[in-house]
Design a protein around this nucleic acid. Structure first.
Lengths: 216, 216
DNA sequence: TGGAAAACATTCCATTCGGCATGTAAGTTC
DNA sequence: GAACTTACATGCCGAATGGAATGTTTTCCA
């Protein structure tokens, strides 16, 4: 390249035309790139095959940069837990906008929980969760975050159906969440989707009956 | 050692006093030792940290012997799946001896499923199951075996409660199994045991109501 | 505007992994 | 009891991993 304007340093020129990247911006950018790549790896490869090298490659970030932000792999995973939970919560909140009130909420709510707790992101959650069983550090990172997600989602429902007895709501909610997680496991190894849908339908019927009995 | 009887070879003498180990016996012994050690590793360390070296160490078996019986790690894992399923099935069958008939079967059956699908062995199942999501070979090994376990347990219940409509039985059974698996996940990372028991109690109540409605 | 600090990149290393090759001992068969 | 097969043991290798060390660029701030 023939430099015609020697007064301006080349680096600065590039900076100007591309726009100034503040440190906070750079930091945030590569951090989320790393965390998203981590979630990608977990969903596609599973925890056992997720290496920091692969994460860096997918994030388009050097190994040094990764170590700058997350000194150790465990630290990266712990951060990924929170990032992942935030994404799921956002997903749930976005889908909760058009929820009906009254009895219809039962059915729609079950669908919402299904989507939130058995969707694509939940595969990554499973990986981390199962790993956490034998990894105290990861478990410590997961427990509070997950509990918060569960409770906040429950509160969302309680707001939508104030007429419902709290006890009934809690029971139906947690039963649905745990059933969903079990079904999600089944789905992940290629269980019969038709039977899963049928079970979900039956459960809606049962839950609705419980709701009707308890609300009157 | 001062050999006083040169007529008999030393090796044979040892053989005689310890009893003759047939090839089939030796084979079976080290095989199950390896498979049990594999399950131990999965339970205690999780899949990611389970190495063949560790398995061999716990089984008290050399690496060569392991490779003789299971050429590859994947092969060992696939065999472990079957071994594990057999142990679970035996556990369930043993506990199913004193199951009542009639309505009480609902409660007791739920407890039985809980013990079978959320017991100690189920942690290893979870590890393999979650791993299978991103490991086609392992998934291929798990699917048929697990399906067989599920169906045979269902048939056990159907035998015990012939008066129950088949559709109702299937629904309650699979709902319970999946709920149990979800709760097992929760239990493994140290969720609140009291709430889990409460949910199980509520579910028994609901299931009993469903049974009563459908049986009349 | 010049130096400090933060962000990012490159290289290297000790360890561990799964698997292979080769060798020895025990059991089977004729 | 000798050939043969099966079971078991030891040592080694290339690949990959997580992490440390060190060097370079970009932004910040006084």
């Amino acid at each position: 390249m023939t430099a015609t304007k020697p007064t301006q340093p080349d680096a600065l020129a590039r900076t100007r035309e591309r726009g100034h990247r503040t440190q906070a911006e750079r930091r945030e950018r590569t951090r989320t790139a790393l965390l998203d790549a981590t979630i990608d790896c977990l969903t596609e490869l599973g925890y056992a095959r997720t290496s920091v090298q692969e994460i860096c490659a997918r994030a388009g970030v050097s190994k040094g940069a990764q170590q700058h932000h997350f000194a150790t792999k465990a630290e990266l995973m712990a951060a990924a837990v929170e990032h992942l939970t935030n994404r799921i919560q956002a997903e749930i909140l976005a889908a909760s906008g058009d929820l009906p009130e009254g009895p219809e909420l039962v059915e729609q709510g079950i669908d919402l929980i299904w989507q939130g707790f058995a969707g694509t992101l939940s595969a990554a959650v499973m990986e981390l969760w199962v790993t956490a069983r034998t990894d105290a550090e990861l478990a410590a990172a997961i427990k509070p975050v997950d509990k918060a997600l569960g409770r906040s989602t429950l509160e969302l429902f309680q707001t939508l159906a104030p007429e419902m007895p709290q006890r009934t709501m809690e029971t139906l909610y947690w039963l649905t969440v745990n059933l969903t997680r079990g079904l999600a496991l089944d789905a992940q190894i290629g269980g019969d989707a038709a039977r899963r849908n049928q079970l979900l339908t039956e459960w809606k019927r049962i839950a609705l009956a419980v709701y009707r009995d308890d609300v009157t």
